[in-house]
Design a binder for these strands. Structure first.
Lengths: 216, 216
DNA sequence: CAGTCACATGACTGATTGGTCATATTATAT
DNA sequence: ATATAATATGACCAATCAGTCATGTGACTG
């Protein structure tokens, strides 16, 4: 975790450092991301960065925390209401949040994506445990849906969950492919209404397919 | 492409170099993969490697070729028969090939996966074009299915194709998660019959879900 | 034997890396 | 104004990187 000195920093300077670090880790994986380039772009001395963070992994885990906390905030906002929704409404809300996150914070999304798919210094177990945790969340959701009769009882919950997670995690790529949103767009740059409706149509179609299948 | 000298090499030496390079590029992305480590592990001088390949990207693209050619060979074997199968049989065959490839050549699969998801020195356009090409293949397959009445006409072919590709490309991870197959398993190590049947059940379930949906 | 050619070698280069630390600057407190 | 503590700095270090090249080796040819 960052040292106290990092919190004592003036807001704009701290934010600038974070921005530069996010830029770097969004474009390169952990091993290739360069501390030297981060401090150069942020306009601070390398020694300074090492007064804010213990080492490279410290900075990296700080960014991963930023990713999950930002996402968690959006989740909390979306699920503020009754937590017992019909299954497919829950699914819709989940997809909606993931898509919005991807649109609003494409760089943070990229960091998170790299962390789960590529290489990172964290114990590998910890990472796949994270992915398994996501799958497990869907498994319980699906089993609830089975209990309420919304989902066919012969569905293998784990495999269905795996499909959902795959579609979710890859949807970001598809979104940016379709909307042309890319790294040149700054984080927090509000997406246009046209993009939003396109995205909404996208994940509604996805859910429809997962719900009813494609067979005639 | 590799120089002629590489082809002139004695078979075992050439294979040893390929194996070590595959090892390295399967574990690290392009930027992090180390030529020094490859030659050290292969027991050759660094200068020698540069008599076989022009530079790092030359070696890398050679490996990517190896990946796609290996996969293409398996595809050709599976689709030797009549090329106009019912849609869901084609889908089954596709999934089957992808799963077998993942099982038989986990390292090659990992290299290919990194190439599409992570960073590589190739023009980025070329890579996402590759992914889009895969999607396009599914799009035509789906449109054929629509024409024959196998698939509902209101399905958005592109979105459905995206879901298939996502499931396909992530299935490797799921397979290794379920079967415990990992980097410690050598390429070409034949998977056990138990693993094979487990895998078969997996992608049959996946196709069933994509075909009929999960709704009751 | 001499000459030629293909390949093998590893010391070397210049660049870059994560990380350190003595020193300089600034802010706070007395 | 002086002392003390907090922060800023960049030259520096050892390690590593991709890539080069003069030299060496061995096999084939005349």
């Amino acid at each position: 975790m960052p040292l106290q000195t990092f919190d004592n920093l003036p807001e704009d300077k701290r934010q600038r450092i974070i921005d530069c670090a996010v830029d770097e880790f969004a474009q390169h994986d952990y091993a290739s991301a360069s501390i030297s380039k981060i401090v150069a772009k942020a306009g601070i001395a390398k020694g300074s960065l090492y007064q804010y963070f213990n080492d490279k992994t410290d900075l990296y885990t700080y960014l991963l925390d930023l990713v999950s906390q930002t996402k968690a905030k959006m989740m909390a906002k979306a699920f503020r209401q009754e937590n017992r929704m019909p299954f497919f409404e829950s699914l819709l809300a989940l997809f909606s949040v993931m898509a919005s996150f991807e649109l609003q914070y494409p760089k943070l999304a990229k960091i998170g994506y790299k962390a789960t798919s590529g290489k990172s210094p964290l114990p590998e177990d910890l990472l796949i445990k994270g992915k398994q945790a996501t799958i497990q969340y869907f498994v319980t959701l699906i089993n609830q849906g089975k209990a309420t009769g919304e989902i066919r009882p012969d569905i293998d919950a784990e495999i269905a969950a795996f499909i959902f997670v795959s579609a979710l995690s890859e949807m970001g790529n598809f979104v940016s492919m379709k909307t042309g949103i890319d790294k040149n767009i700054e984080d927090s740059g509000k997406p246009t209404p046209a993009q939003l409706s396109e995205i909404e149509r996208l994940y509604q179609q996805v859910i429809m397919i997962l719900k009813n299948g494609i067979a005639n």
